[in-house]
Amino acid sequence: MRFTKDHEWVVLEGDTATIGITAYAAEQLGDVVFVETPEVGKTFQAGDAFAVVESVKAASDVYAPIAGEVVEANPELTEAPETVNASPESGGWFAKVRVADPAQYEGLMDRDAYEAFLATL
């Protein structure tokens, strides 16, 4: 699992990346009430806004940590957006993306680096 400074996580399996928001992000948002996942077939560059998460506190964009094409969106989040709070770094994933450049994954923070980054906030 790798992380961004915008609090997204990504797990790369073969040429497919699963993307979601971190436990820290979910905690900061509070109770998630709505998630807009990206459409299958849509392509993104790293850093592009690719999903929206709304909580009782705020609405926030979720940014693509890695470039690629959406191959699957998490259907559970439409009916149960609170899954993001309950399981942000597993069942609360937003989308699966066919990766354009796997080298981008290596440029992201590992968990230790992300934890060190959080300590600076």
Rank of each mutant, 00 (worst) to 15 (best):
A58S: 15
D61V: 10
E89Y: 03
P75D: 08
A64W: 02
E8W: 06
F50Q: 03
V84E: 03
D61F: 10
E27G: 13
V32I: 14
V70N: 04
P81T: 04
V56Q: 08
T78W: 02
L77V: 06
V62W: 00
A64C: 15
A67V: 07
E39W: 09
E54L: 08
L12G: 13
K57W: 06
A25V: 08
P65H: 09
F34V: 03
D61S: 15
S55K: 04
A86Q: 12
I19K: 01
T78P: 05
E69Q: 15
A86C: 00
D31L: 10
A25H: 12
A17V: 11
G92E: 01
T22F: 07
Q28Y: 10
V33K: 02
A46V: 03
F44A: 06
E89N: 06
E36L: 02
A80I: 09
G92L: 00
V40I: 15
N85C: 07
G41K: 10
T43Y: 05
E8K: 06
V84C: 00
V33S: 02
F34M: 09
G20K: 03
P88T: 04
V70K: 06
Q45M: 14
K42L: 11
A73M: 04
G20I: 01
Q28W: 09
N74G: 05
E13A: 11
T22E: 07
G30N: 11
F44C: 03
E89R: 03
D61H: 12
A80Q: 14
G92Q: 02
D15L: 14
E27D: 14
E27Y: 12
G14M: 12
G92R: 05
N85G: 03
A49T: 11
E39L: 15
E27K: 14
E82Q: 11
V32P: 01
T18W: 02
E39Q: 15
E8I: 05
A26Q: 07
T37M: 07
V40W: 11
A51F: 01
F34L: 10
A80C: 09
E27C: 10
F94P: 00
E82K: 13
T78E: 15
A17P: 07
A26I: 06
N74M: 02
F34E: 07
A51S: 11
T83M: 09
E76S: 11
A59I: 04
P75Q: 04
G91D: 11
Q28P: 10
